[in-house]
Structure formats: structure tokens, C-alpha cells
Simulated scan of single mutants.
Amino acid sequence: MSSQQEGESIRCLVAKVGLDGHDRGAHVVSRAFRDAGFEVIYSGLHKSPEEIVQAAVQEDVDVLGISILSGAHDTLVPKVMDGLEEYGAKDDTLVLVGGVIPEEDRPELEEAGVAAIFGPGTSIAETVEFVRENAPRR
């Protein structure tokens, strides 16, 4: 995956998967991405993995940020990754996960194709910089 050219707009979907109703972080990240010049789509709450995959594919996003605090990351995130694979979108979509993800669960998510996991206390600047450096070139 090569990074975006300077001046190219990066399209991002910030998504809430499952029954997790805590969306403050997703709103903060969405706003920060918008302030950084990214195009941002917010999924809203309580989306199924299939709905998130459909939105990512239909909106042709470069970046999919999944915010999850419910503890169901080990079930829901792999379903999203499998869905992206089915649509042939896994390799050209940078997938990030934000939330409280235990260290022991991180390798499985990374093996599924998650590029980075951002936990509590991660600076917005670090997240924006990661996206700028790693978003796929279109």
C-alpha cells in the first residue's frame, strides 16, 4: 500500500459496529479527520458488520476506522474484514480499530488485516499522521 499524494483527499468511514452505544470517541475522531482535510462519513450507531462493509464499498473509502468499546471486537472486526475480502476491497482499504482492545487480542485482529489499533490516550495527531502516511493511493 503506498501513501496518498499531497493534496489528494482521503475518504474515511468512521464506523460503530454492534450494540456499542458509546460514540463520543468516534465523533472526536470524525471531527479531527475532517479538520485534517479528510472526507469523513460517519456510520451512526449500532451497525452490523455487513452494513459497515456495504457503506465502505459503496462510498469507495480509503480508510475504515472501526470504533468499538463493547468487547465484541474479536467477533465483529473479523466479520468486517471477511466482508471486505468478499468484495475485493480488503487490500485497498486501510482498516483501523479504536477502543479498549486487550493486548492479547491485538495479534488476531492484525492477522485479520487491521493495520493499526489505537487505544485510550492515543493522540489525535498520531492517528491523523498514521492515516496520512498509510492511506492507499487511488
Results as ranks from 00 to 15, higher is better:
residue 50 E to K: 07
residue 67 S to M: 03
residue 78 P to D: 09
residue 3 S to M: 08
residue 66 I to C: 09
residue 18 G to N: 04
residue 106 R to T: 06
residue 133 E to L: 15
residue 6 E to V: 12
residue 126 E to R: 08
residue 21 G to D: 06
residue 85 E to H: 15
residue 51 E to F: 09
residue 89 A to M: 14
residue 5 Q to D: 13
residue 18 G to A: 01
residue 6 E to A: 10
residue 98 G to Q: 10
residue 105 D to R: 03
residue 9 S to I: 13
residue 128 V to W: 04
residue 120 P to G: 15
residue 12 C to H: 12
residue 113 G to D: 06
residue 54 Q to V: 11
residue 73 H to V: 00
residue 10 I to H: 09
residue 8 E to V: 00
residue 137 R to K: 14
residue 65 G to E: 03
residue 85 E to F: 08
residue 111 E to C: 07
residue 52 I to Q: 02
residue 110 E to R: 12
residue 59 E to A: 14
residue 4 Q to Y: 13
residue 76 L to Y: 05
residue 126 E to F: 04
residue 46 H to S: 13
residue 45 L to T: 04
residue 62 D to F: 01
residue 96 L to N: 07
residue 117 I to S: 06
residue 99 G to L: 08
residue 68 I to V: 06
residue 103 E to V: 10
residue 118 F to G: 01
residue 93 T to K: 05
residue 34 R to C: 15
residue 75 T to K: 03
residue 79 K to D: 02
residue 121 G to I: 03
residue 72 A to Y: 10
residue 20 D to S: 00
residue 87 Y to A: 10
residue 127 T to Q: 11
residue 75 T to R: 03
residue 13 L to K: 10
residue 69 L to D: 01
residue 21 G to T: 04
residue 117 I to L: 13
residue 8 E to A: 11
residue 51 E to Q: 10
residue 25 G to N: 08
residue 35 D to Y: 02
residue 90 K to Q: 09
residue 129 E to I: 03
residue 100 V to A: 15
residue 65 G to N: 09
residue 53 V to C: 07
residue 85 E to R: 15
residue 56 A to S: 08
residue 131 V to Q: 03
residue 134 N to L: 09
residue 74 D to I: 11
residue 137 R to L: 15
residue 74 D to K: 12
residue 26 A to N: 07
residue 47 K to W: 05
residue 89 A to N: 15
residue 98 G to A: 01
residue 48 S to Y: 09
residue 49 P to V: 00
residue 83 G to H: 00
residue 32 A to Q: 00
residue 62 D to R: 09
residue 33 F to W: 04
residue 59 E to S: 14
residue 30 S to E: 04
